[in-house]
Write a protein that binds this DNA or RNA. Sequence first.
DNA 1: TGCCAGGCCGGGT
DNA 2: ACCCGGCATGGC
Length: 203
Amino acid sequence: MLDALGPSHWWPAATPFEVAVGAVLTQNTNWGNVERAIANLKAGGDFEVRALAALPDEVLAERIRPAGYFRLKARRLKNLLAMLVRECDGDITRLAGQDMETIRGKLLAVSGVGPETADSILLYALGYPSFVVDAYTARICQRHGLTPEDAGYEELRTFFMDGLPDDVSLYNEFHALLVRVGNAWCRPRTPQCRECPLERFLP
DNA sequence: TGCCAGGCCGGGT
DNA sequence: ACCCGGCATGGC
């Protein structure tokens, strides 16, 4: 995939805090829409933990409207922001330093943060070797018979983490490439992935 | 015009 | 322990 596409330079966000916000906003949503929402947040002048947490729900929702599910995601963001204020005085980088599973548990305890969002924050914001599984990862694995049809999130994550060294840069690039290959070739409802670079290596 | 996009929650079996 | 409906905008 790297030979075919080149390096990805992910996550496409400037700071760890922006990664975390983007991770919530991109749930089941095109990244292009998320960029608009983040631009709106920055234009509002409150792109910081306590300032966003202080916004009324309806105001926050209106700013993130382009990302879809905007009322729902406003609540989810608030939940995450509250956890950051409580656990690390609003400085997300101060979550680092603890055991990875401990932090993962704190992220998963936030209503609106599921396994993919948690792992994205761990890997792309905090630099922990937590492999990110998404819809593309699952679809590509299933299409190529790499994992059982009924494999769930944790099983897929374990498949990659047991087969790869604990390497943040490797996990980062691998996930990014899976998303890019998925977007370009491995579509739902398309049984044949023609011209997919993976076809050279996988059945 | 539908289909799809870097999910997750809560209630029901 | 699964299964499902709900959540919503924008691009192609």
